[in-house]
Structure formats: C-alpha cells, structure tokens
Amino acid sequence: MRTTIPIIVAFLAGTLLIVSFFFNPEKIWIGDAKELALQWMTIVGGFALVLGVVSIVRVNARAVQRKSEGWFYKLMTVISVFAMAIPAIMPVTKESVGGSIFYSIFPESCMGYLGTGSNSFYDWLFNYVDAPMMETMFAMLAFYIASAAYRAFRARNTEATLLLLTAILVMLWRVPMGEAFLRLFSDNLPGYINTYVMGGFNVAVQRGIIIGAALGAASMSLRIILGIERTYMGK
C-alpha cells in the first residue's frame, strides 16, 4: 500500500502532464494542467519550507546547546535565518494581512523598514551583507580554477594534449592581451578559433551531451511514470 498509492499518483500526474501538452489551453482545462501543476508545486514548496527551517534550527540549535566546536557560528546561522525571514513576512502597510493589528501596536514610522522594498531592512541586509558575500564566493572560483588547472591539466596522452592545446588557444582568444598575441601569428587566427572551435567542435559536443542527457531524462521519467523505477521512493 505504501508503494502502490505513490506509484498510482506518479502515473496519473505524469500522464496528465503529458496529455496536457497536446491540448489547447485556451479551449480546454486539460491544456492548462501544466501551469496548474506548477502552481500547486509552488504552494507545496512553500509549506515544505517549514521543514527546511525546522531542520536548520534543530541541527544548529543542538550544537549551540552542547557548546560544540564552532557553536557561535551556528548561533549566528540561526539568527541570520530569522533576521532575513521576519522583516520579509511582516505586514508592509495597514492594508496588508494583519497590518491593522500590527500598526496599532508598533508605530507607523517603521512601515518603510519592513517588507522587501528599497530602504527596507531586508534590502539593506541583501545589498550590504548577502550580495558581497555571494560575490566573494563566486570570485573564489578564479583561485580554484587556477589550482585545478595546475594540478589536473596534464598532457598524459594524445587526447589530453589536444584538449590542453585547445584550452590554451581558447583562453588566449577570450582576452584582449591573448588575442593581440594570437594576431602576431595570423590576423585570422582569433576568427578561426571562434568559427571552428567554439562554433564547430564545441557545438557538436554540447549537442551530443544535451541530446544524450535529454534522452536519459525522458527515459528515466518514463520509468518513473510507469512505476518501473522506484529507487527515488527508497524502494
């Protein structure tokens, strides 16, 4: 029973979405089923967020309680979760849900600071705390790429050597200094790299992988819809 009902649900949901693709959404409800399902998913996802919050609080609160190593950072994590969430769910105006009660307790002057609009507390946290941290993490890629390239890019065999040479040519082509260097050999060299490497080999490889992956995804979806693949249910 624990397996049968989910399989039936998966079959019906999958089939409905496939069938809906072939019907005109302006003429019949079934054509709109995909959009409807997407909306349902957003709603279910919203409720599932509570699970996430419970998990993050439980794991970190336990560490704080036991004063285990790095407990202070875990405490900061829990505080940050609520620091970003609370201002975003507070009523922004008197007309918002619960707004009349909220602003009968708190002064109306705090209206601008709530919500997610510009000048809000959330916005401030985003612009001056979250965004710089995200940018820093992304920038770290440059360091990691350098160390990975140094360690892993070895001309071990013919294929690896070809790959290495191509990579060097593309790296040179993508920057002005490198492009100027390439032009010392031939004015057409950057153009050739663009045409043959990026527009030729690259496109062929990308398409091969994309087609293969799309088929794999379709095959897996089919196996799930038909109940052949049950591993995702832990079976």
């Binding site: 001309a155 290495l164 993508r174 920057v175 490198g178």
Partner: peptide, 24 residues
C-alpha cells in the same frame, strides 16, 4: 576588468605549462 582577466588567463596558461614541464 579586461586587463585583470587577461593577466589571470595568462597566469593559468603559465601554471599549466609549468605543471606539464614538471610532469614530463
């Protein structure tokens, strides 16, 4: 930013060459 990107690309190429010399 293009100059910085040029330099970092050249550095990576240099590192790849050094790494391969060591390998050989």
């Amino acid at each position: 930013g293009m100059d910085a990107q040029s330099m970092s690309h050249l550095l990576i190429i240099f590192l790849v060459i050094v790494g391969n010399l060591g390998f050989f």
